[in-house]
Design a binder for these strands. Structure first.
Lengths: 105, 105
DNA sequence: CCTATAGATTGACGATTGTCAATGCAGTAT
DNA sequence: ATACTGCATTGACAATCGTCAATCTATAGG
């Protein structure tokens, strides 16, 4: 699901429709949490990160980390791949670029 | 209060500190609401907008509009000026640009 | 099989959020 | 002064959110 907001015109140029505003707000809400921002930056710094390597630097419990990775991946910002017992995460770079564009690129 | 996040390195390049993540999350939280996104785009579309001209297009009550303008201005995204009985709003364009940069410009 | 492990899910809790009715307050006009 | 107007503030409510303990699922190794 691409950001339809970005295909048209950014926030600064024309009034947003209710639907576009809802859509953009959903992605921004996924980003608007300090733990998720740090999680995202941790994954971006390395190329791929296993869930098990996120608990310590984030200082959060395993269910909490799992919750946040789910929110980010449902927002299209993170891509997960299960290999064996481990879950590997990497960022979806286009998604963040789309948010920047929608914000007035 | 400038975004210290943006002075250093965007989310995609290095792990965020807890303080930077908190700060960026606060601005993003102000943006992560459909009504506020539409409010912001309405103000951006015209140069200046009076509070009284926001209730109808947003379909929200006067206290609700007042609440949202407060949130946006406290986040540094909107600038308010009282002239007579009317409150005039305009966007602080640098702030949105800072958010874009912090998001991986 | 059985045990161990990485991660997801559930349920519960307090905290925060968006909304509006009611009220308060400052500025205008009569 | 009195009445009106535009906006802010308060208080209340339901809804959502972040967090963790407990539990469940799936995979790996004996």
């Amino acid at each position: 699901m691409p950001l339809t907001v970005m295909c048209c015109s950014p926030v600064t140029e024309a009034p947003l429709s209710e639907a576009d505003a809802e859509e953009l707000a959903r992605v921004l809400a996924a980003l608007a949490d300090p733990v998720r921002l740090r999680l995202l930056s941790l994954v971006a710094a390395q190329n791929e990160v296993c869930s098990c390597d996120l608990e310590a630097p984030l200082g959060k419990s395993q269910p909490t980390v799992s919750h946040h990775t789910k929110v980010l991946s449902e927002a299209g910002l993170l891509l997960g791949e299960k290999r064996g017992r481990w879950m590997w995460w990497r960022v979806e770079p286009n998604r963040l670029a789309a948010v920047r564009t929608a914000l007035g690129g």
